[in-house]
């Protein structure tokens, strides 16, 4: 129950920051950070894959309601939820240790978390920008936006994670 509350609170907080603050940041009309995929990233390992997908759908849909872009964020976030287990495997390079409960810095280490989060962010942003323009002519434009926005999103995510879930002292 405690876990459930924690994740719900994180969900509300991330959506709030995204809608109220980050959606108003657009430097030069290109750079636009998205941090709400962090909600999907931080869900526990034990969560069944189908539930991940549903939560991804819900998260994206909530964002879409606020941004009046029906389906756009939903599609991108469902994709993130779908590839998450594969990225976890890829980032670990080995089967997860028994003790691993949640994909946080404290449990998995900061290097693991960095490669894990940047992969998901790139997948998310790429899907988002490609679907939004949906035009092969604007491919270079989408890549450009990805290259500008993804590092900013990743930096914000790392800041949040370090602030709220600092790595354990060794």
């Amino acid at each position: 129950m405690n876990n459930f509350l924690r994740h719900s609170f994180r969900f509300v907080a991330l959506i709030f920051i995204q809608v109220m603050v980050l959606n108003h940041i657009h430097i030069g009309g290109y750079v636009n950070p998205f941090i709400y995929p962090l909600f999907i990233m931080l869900l526990p390992f034990s969560m069944p894959h189908w539930l991940l997908l549903f939560l991804g759908f819900g998260t994206g849909f909530t964002l879409d309601l606020f941004m009046s872009t029906p389906g756009l964020h939903t599609a991108a976030t469902v994709l993130v939820a779908f590839v998450r287990p594969y990225i976890v495997r890829l980032a670990s390079g080995a089967p997860l240790p028994e003790s691993a409960s949640e994909p946080t810095i404290a449990v998995m280490g900061s290097r693991w978390f960095f490669s894990y989060s940047i992969s998901l962010i790139i997948i998310h942003h790429l899907a988002l920008f490609l679907l939004e323009s949906f035009d092969p002519q604007h491919l270079s434009d989408s890549i450009y936006r990805l290259l500008l926005s993804a590092p900013l999103s990743e930096a914000l995510i790392l800041m949040l994670v370090y602030f709220f879930q600092p790595p354990r002292k060794r």
């Binding site: 389906g71 756009l72 679907l131």
Partner: peptide, 17 residues
């Protein structure tokens, strides 16, 4: 399930466009 959810999302996206 993934394909189903994506189809719903893309359907919304293209209808709204």
């Amino acid at each position: 399930l993934f394909l189903l959810l994506e189809i719903i999302a893309l359907n919304m996206l293209f209808r709204s466009n």
